[in-house]
Structures are given as C-alpha cells and as structure tokens.
Design a protein around this nucleic acid. Structure first.
Length: 499
RNA sequence: GGCGCUAUCGUCUAGGGGUUAGGACGUCAGAUUCUCAAUCUGAAAACCCGGGUUCGAUUCCCGGUAGCGCUACCA
C-alpha cells in the first residue's frame, strides 16, 4: 500500500461534537497506525466570515482532545490551501473541464419547479429524482441563456447503472444508478456543492482513505460518479456508525454534555474521552480490553473490529474511565487541573505558590475516590473550606449526633484534649482517640462518628486520617478562603453546642 | 412514500453451525472501613420475530418488524 493519507473535514459551526471527535479520532488512529498523514481540512464554503472564530475553537478543541495533524489551515503542507473557501479556483477549473468533456451541464430549473416535481414523485411513491430536463439542452442554447444573465447551476450527468464499492466497515455496498438524479456540482450562486468539493479536495490532496460518518453512505455513489467522470481512482471508504443518545435518537446538544467544551468544563480528562470514544464502535477483538493508552490504540487499531451498528453514548462509562485516569494522573498535573475548579468556587485564587499547590494536591487526592469529574470538586471539598458550627447543630443529618447523649459524652472528653495540644498531627489525634475510647468505653462507629461530625460538619467524607493534616496545613497557608484548623473548629463547636 | 444502514444482557461489546454465550459500565448482595466512597467477592441480566437450509441455528439465507440515516442549488 502506498503511503496512507486521511483527512478530517469538519465545518466550523461551534464546539467540536463527540460524533465528529470520534470520526477525527478514528482517522487519526488509522493514520498513526500506518505511519501516514492526518490532514485537517476546513469545510467553510458556507460559513460567514464573522464565524471564522469557530475555526479557532475547532482547532483548540481538537488540540485539547489530544489529536495532532500533519497538514491543516494552521500548518504548511504540499496540498494546501486547507480551507475550502480558499480553494474556489480549483472548483472552477475542474467544473470547466467537466463541461468541456460533456459530462456536466447547466441547469436552469427554478427551485420552485424542482420542489413541485419532487412532491409529485413522492406522492406517486417514486424516489424523488431530478428529471434531467436541462440535460437535453443544446450547449449553444445553454451558453446563450447564461450570457443573457439567467441563473444556472451545474449538474453532473449520471451514466452508470450501478455504483459499487468495498466499504472498510460495511463490506461490499451497491447503489442502483436508477435512484440517483444528476447531482448539483456548482450552485447557481457559484458555490460548489459539498459532494463536488469533497471529491476535488480529496483527490487533489491525495487522500487514500475517507473515514466518515455513515450518514454519508448515500452520498458515496454521487461522489463515485464524479471520480468516474474525471477518470480518477477513488479512495477507500469507511463509514462509521452513528452515535445515539440514551433515547436512541442521534446524539445532539439536547442530550446534554456532548461537545469538547462541555467535557472540558465538566473536568473530563481528554485521555479518558479518547479511550471511551475509541471503544465506542471499535474493540481490540479480545473481548476484554477496556483501558488503552494512545500507543496501544494506535498499535492495535484496525477496521476489522469496527462495528457496523450504532452505539449509545453512555456518560456513566465515560465517568468510570475518567475516574480511572484521574487516579492515574501524576500529582502535579492533578493539582494543576483541579486548581481552576477550586478557584471558580471561590476557594482559591490563582496564581499560587508551590506549598499551596502541594496542599491542593492533598485535598484533591483525599476526595478523589468520590469524584467522577473535576466539576464535583467544589462539592466534595466544601467541608474542608466551609465550617459552620451552627448549621451542624441544626442540620437535618447532623443534629441527632449532637443531641445524642453518647455522642456528647465522646465529644466532652475529646474536645478539651485536642484544645490542649499546641499542634495536632494525625498521630496525636490517634492517641487522643484512644484515650477517649478508654475513658468513655465507646469505640468504632460510636467513637468516630461524633468526632467526624464535630470536626467536618458532615456525616460522610474522606478518612479523618487524611482530613486532619489537611485542616492543619491549610490553616497555616495564606489562602483566600481561610481554612480552619481542628482546634478552631472544635472551639466553635463546643461553644455552639454548649459543651 | 422511496432508497439505504443496523439488530447479542439496561448500555458498550466478544464470539460464532453444537459454548455453562465471555468481558466491561450500571444495578443488587456480601466482605472491609469511623461514614460515604474506593477496593475485593458474588448475583441477576442478552442472541428482535417468522420461515428456510441443516442431524443441529443465536450464528448462514429469505421475509417481517423496529431503530437510525439519506431523500436539498446543507455540509
């Protein structure tokens, strides 16, 4: 096989959607697996100039997702330009060639006329298809009407009786030529139609494999017809199945978080998303592998195990993978990732010094196992940053702990001992807890639960073993949102509870 | 309506003419822990329907059904 070249050709219309991200990922995996080139082409023929900012966002989303491309609008390459809007000359030149060869013709039918015919076809139970009226027009006649200023589109003459290709995912695929009307190549306003522009671009960019969504399957015969008209060798095609929402409808914005932007905001790690999306529609074939590094994905990727059937996007499983990658993340990276989320909650301000960063990592690490995404961080760390004795005493969940005689007994013994210490460590805490145990005869849950409630204000949370040092260290740091140490907490609690 | 694509636990999937139909997420139960979680162990949970081929079909073929896509001078 000659050198593999694949492309991802999105239209810039907003943040990159999972469906497109997966298509991009599969292109990337295939290119990297074969040591080929991954080309990024922007399909912006119809996009307003003012919306060029979407292209910037698209590139950013792609970079965040973790894909890199070899050629694209922001890179030089031998096959540019990489924006369709800058390739008008090519489209015009090849259109002329087709007209000269007699394989394309001008069509003067009005939109209303076509619409009427289409409706008549549908009503009669036929496949709506262009009648081919203008195909019969003489070249001179057509030329005359164009000079006269009559608007005209350009259509391709479909001659073949059938179109067949070997799809890398679906296998042999055939469409009858009967059902394909002569497709528009260039619109009457001069814009190239999608099916025309892609073929020109893919050929000129020497794309060897077209990997795209299966919503393009029925476009493929039209494109094949174009390759035939030019006598160009068509690329290989691979049509990926659709990603569905939980309701089995095509996944879209209304299904919630489905764009790179929303995943980033949620605190989903790109490597988790890559892993998840790679396995949505592809498997290694061993029936067991769930967690894959980029290297492993690239090494093992093959169309042999790409599924034909549509797949439902499952956020739960993504979260599971995200949890995995969160735990795998090196401390420095984790702290860096977590910082913005804590800053947004008003707990910290950037920039920060190394000792704060280290402390942040301890905080994140303490609550990590309760997290699906980083966006849950403010919630999970609330007991660390906020302590309010009054709400503990009146709180629905915590009130009974304070009122219970056994708990009061434990706390009455516990609090003075902590306050007597000048500095609390987890070891000292253990010693004190032991002493309280001996004194009150309480142990296990009866002993630690009241202490947990008094110190953290919550009935659940990370281990006290982790929390105590966090409180103590946090109180030493110059934080925007000061953290109270254990003694301070207990002092406030004792006063409010009348202990 | 026409054309096309698809069909294994709730979800992602492995498998394949004879299997106890495997794994993962989720769910449930037990163990463990000061709690929640995490972790470990275990459980429930699937071959869309009907014909045909065959000694034998979940697997191959045909039909149906359902879901999705396309049906544009959108991309």
């Amino acid at each position: 096989m000659s050198k593999v070249r694949v492309r991802f050709a999105p239209s810039p219309t907003g943040s990159l959607h999972v469906g497109n991200a997966r298509t991009a990922l599969f292109n990337w995996l295939f290119a990297r697996h074969h040591g080929g080139a991954f080309v990024l082409r922007i399909e912006d023929t119809d996009v307003e100039r003012s919306e060029l900012r979407y292209e910037t966002q698209l590139l950013e989303d792609l970079r965040w997702f973790g894909l890199d491309w070899d050629e694209g609008p922001d890179k030089s390459g031998a096959f540019g330009p990489y924006r369709q809007s800058e390739r008008q000359d090519f489209y015009a030149r090849y259109a002329t060639q087709l007209i000269d060869q007699g394989q394309a013709y001008h069509c003067f039918c009005s939109a209303e006329q076509l619409e009427t015919e289409r409706q008549a076809d549908t009503k009669a139970g036929r496949q709506p298809k262009y009648s081919g009226r203008c195909r019969k027009l003489q070249r001179v006649e057509a030329a005359r009407r164009i000079t006269a200023g009559e608007p005209a589109s350009l259509r391709l003459k479909i001659e073949a009786s059938a179109f067949t290709w070997h799809d890398l995912v679906h296998g042999a695929t055939t469409f009858s030529g009967e059902v394909i009307g002569d497709p528009i190549l260039v619109r009457s306003d001069g814009h190239p139609a999608y099916n025309y522009a892609v073929v020109i671009d893919d050929h000129l960019m020497e794309i060897t494999h077209v990997i795209r969504g299966d919503d393009h399957i029925s476009n493929t015969p039209r494109q094949l017809a174009l390759y035939q008209a030019f006598d160009w060798e068509p690329p290989h095609f691979a049509h990926l199945s659709t990603i569905l929402g939980p309701d089995r409808a095509r996944l879209s914005k209304r299904h919630g978080a489905t764009s790179m932007e929303s995943f980033r905001e949620l605190g989903i790690l790109p490597e988790a998303l890559r892993n998840y999306l790679a396995l949505l529609g592809w498997s290694t074939g061993d029936g067991v592998t769930e967690i894959l590094s980029d290297e492993e994905m690239i090494k093992q990727f093959s169309f042999d195990h790409v599924t034909k059937s549509p797949a439902v996007f499952d956020l739960e499983k993504l979260n599971w993978l995200n949890r995995h990658y969160l735990k795998e993340s090196p401390p420095a990276r984790l702290a860096e990732l977590a910082f913005p989320f804590l800053a947004r909650a008003g707990y910290l301000t950037e920039p920060s010094n190394p000792s704060i960063l280290h402390w942040v990592w301890n905080v994140v690490n303490a609550v990590l196992k309760n997290l699906d995404t980083l966006s849950q961080l403010p919630d999970a760390t609330r007991p660390i940053f906020n302590y309010d004795a009054a709400s503990i005493i009146h709180g629905e969940e915590t009130r009974h702990v304070v009122e219970e005689a056994g708990s009061r007994e434990v706390l009455a013994a516990f609090i003075p001992k902590v306050l007597a210490e000048s500095e609390l460590t987890y070891e000292k805490f253990r010693v004190i807890a032991k002493a309280v145990q001996k004194e009150t005869g309480k142990k296990g849950k009866d002993l630690f639960h009241p202490i947990r409630v008094a110190v953290t204000g919550a009935v659940s949370g990370p281990e006290l073993e982790k929390l105590i040092p966090i409180f103590e260290e946090g109180a030493q740091l110059a934080l925007t949102h000061p953290v109270k140490n254990t003694a301070q907490r207990l002092r406030e609690f004792a006063q409010a509870a009348g202990l």
